[in-house]
Computed example of a mutant assay.
Amino acid sequence: MKLTELECRAGAPRLGAVELDDLLDALPEWALDGDAITREYRFADYYRTIAFVNALAWIAHQADHHPDLSVHYNRVVVRFGTHDAGGVTLNDLICAARCDALLEHAA
């Protein structure tokens, strides 16, 4: 089953290092950064950047799982980590995969 097909669950536990490494293989553009995963997305202009941010906000709202965002003219840095779990959970990976899927549908 694909990560995008899974549902976020409240109280998801922090993933162990081996499990996290295995699951990150499915998200090659994402990197572990301390207690979170991050990815930078680049766009042609500000309009496309903000359109992506708005779509991402809708996905985050639907999943009730929200990233930290750093928004710039032509790029967005997305950071998912679960504060309550003290690290990366399956919910973070599900939402990261859904972010990547936004670009697949836009192409």
Rank of each mutant, 00 (worst) to 15 (best):
E19C: 04
A36W: 02
Y41R: 06
L15T: 09
D84S: 14
F43L: 12
W58D: 12
D68L: 06
T89C: 05
E5T: 13
D45T: 11
V78E: 01
S70D: 13
R42M: 07
D84H: 03
T89A: 04
P67C: 03
H66K: 01
P13H: 09
L6A: 12
A12F: 07
I94F: 04
A60D: 03
A55F: 00
T82V: 04
G34E: 11
V53E: 10
A96H: 01
R39K: 15
I50S: 05
L3S: 11
D22P: 00
G34N: 09
H72Y: 09
C95G: 04
H61L: 07
L27Y: 10
H66I: 00
D25H: 11
E5Y: 08
E19Q: 15
A57G: 14
Q62W: 04
A17I: 08
F80L: 08
R39I: 02
H72F: 13
E19F: 07
P67A: 07
D64W: 03
L3R: 11
F80V: 04
D92K: 00
S70Q: 08
F43G: 09
D25K: 14
Y73T: 08
G16Q: 00
W30C: 07
I59L: 15
V78R: 04
D92V: 01
G86C: 10
L3Q: 14
Q62R: 14
A44M: 05
F43V: 13
D84I: 00
L20Q: 05
A57Y: 07
G86H: 07
D84T: 12
F52S: 10
C95L: 10
H61D: 15
D21L: 07
C95H: 00
V77I: 09
V77G: 02
H66Y: 06
D22A: 15
L15C: 04
Y41W: 11
T4G: 05
E19S: 05
A31D: 06
V76A: 05
A57S: 15
R42F: 07
L6E: 10
A57H: 06
I94K: 03
L32H: 02
Y47Q: 13
Y46C: 12
N74W: 00
E40D: 13
D35A: 14
H66M: 08
V71K: 02
V53G: 08
T4I: 14
L56E: 09
L90G: 00
V88L: 04
V18M: 07
D45S: 15
R48N: 12
A10Y: 09
Y46D: 09
L3K: 13
G86W: 08
D68E: 11
G11F: 03
Y47D: 14
V77P: 01
V71C: 01
D33T: 10
G16R: 05
A60H: 06
A96L: 04
D64P: 01
H65N: 06
A55P: 04
A44V: 14
A26F: 05
F43S: 06
T49Q: 11
A31M: 12
L20I: 11
N74C: 10
L69A: 01
E29G: 12
W30Q: 01
D68W: 03
V53P: 03
H61R: 11
A12C: 12
D21Y: 08
T49A: 12
A36T: 12
G81V: 02
V78Y: 00
A31R: 13
A57V: 06
N74M: 02
